[in-house]
């Protein structure tokens, strides 16, 4: 169980990205975070694995306060949290296989990995992860030779390598076309349903959110303005979250 308690983030320039955010995620949920650009979705996800340091508040994951950890302990928590990014964040000049293997860095011997060596079983695992996302034949290509959808599948394979118990997906399909978006989100859904990983996923499109979420929260100006089931978001709620001028755009 993941508990976010009174989370606040104020950036150096004084921008308040998160204001006293609190919610709970049960194990096995597929929680979608919606909200406008700049509403604090990315900051929220990055605070959970401490890529961004929260200003105030606590993040309790399975009884451990993540905000109090540092060094080795923090890395041990991070390796259990897979992350998927809008811009895929692959090392473009490295091979697909190396990118996937890097998901294992939290587990392997740092000195061996610094020399570029991974245990045989990790290489086998990486190849099977690539097979699972359907791009095994691309394993030895450079990451930047792949299409956007394929690159995001590499990102998913990298997260899979971590044997994650929690997945943080930051706008995983915002750079992709609608058809590819669904195939990527189906892989994330598989991680959730078959591997039992809890998913926190931020999305722009409400239609996508409705299709995959077991529960949703909405952020507006850094505050939680909605928590509930996808079906509970009607036109009024929609205007509350996205503003009066917004129009719903469907992605099927």
């Amino acid at each position: 169980m993941l508990e976010i308690q009174n989370l606040t983030k104020v950036y150096d320039g004084g921008t308040v990205a998160l204001k006293n955010v609190s919610f709970t995620v049960e194990d096995g949920e597929f929680l979608v975070v919606i909200g406008l650009s700049g509403s604090g979705k990315s900051t929220l996800l990055r605070c959970i694995n401490r890529l961004i340091e929260p200003t105030e508040g606590h993040i309790i994951w399975d009884g451990v306060d993540v905000t109090q950890l540092s060094g080795e302990e923090l890395r041990k928590v991070r390796r259990k949290i897979g992350m998927i990014f809008q811009q895929f964040n692959l090392v473009r000049r490295s091979s697909v296989l190396t990118n996937v293997l890097s998901g294992r860095l939290g587990y392997v011997n740092p000195w061996r990995s610094a020399m570029g060596r991974f245990p045989r079983k990790d290489v086998d695992k990486a190849l099977s992860c690539l097979e699972r996302v359907g791009i095994l034949n691309q394993a030895y290509k450079r990451a930047d030779e792949l299409s956007g959808g394929q690159q995001q599948r590499v990102g998913i394979a990298r997260a899979l390598m971590q044997d994650p118990r929690l997945i943080l997906a930051d706008e995983p399909v915002a750079s992709l076309d609608p058809a590819t978006s669904h195939s990527i989100l189906r892989y994330v859904e598989q991680l959730n349903k078959e591997d039992g990983a809890t998913v926190l996923c931020s999305l722009h499109f409400l239609s996508l959110a409705r299709a995959y979420a077991t529960r949703m929260i909405a952020l507006k100006d850094g505050e939680v303005v909605f928590q509930g089931l996808p079906t509970e978001i009607d036109d009024n709620r929609f205007k509350e979250i996205y503003g009066e001028d917004a129009i719903q755009v469907e992605i099927r």
């Binding site: 990055r46 694995n49 890529l51 890395r75 041990k76 928590v77 991070r78 390796r79 259990k80 949290i81 992350m83 990014f85 964040n89 692959l90 090392v91 890097s102 998901g103 294992r104 860095l105 939290g106 587990y107 990102g155 990298r158 390598m161 971590q162 943080l168």
Partner: peptide
């Protein structure tokens, strides 16, 4: 960011 997130 991505590599840090893996616990490296």
């Amino acid at each position: 960011e991505a590599i840090r997130a893996t616990g490296a």
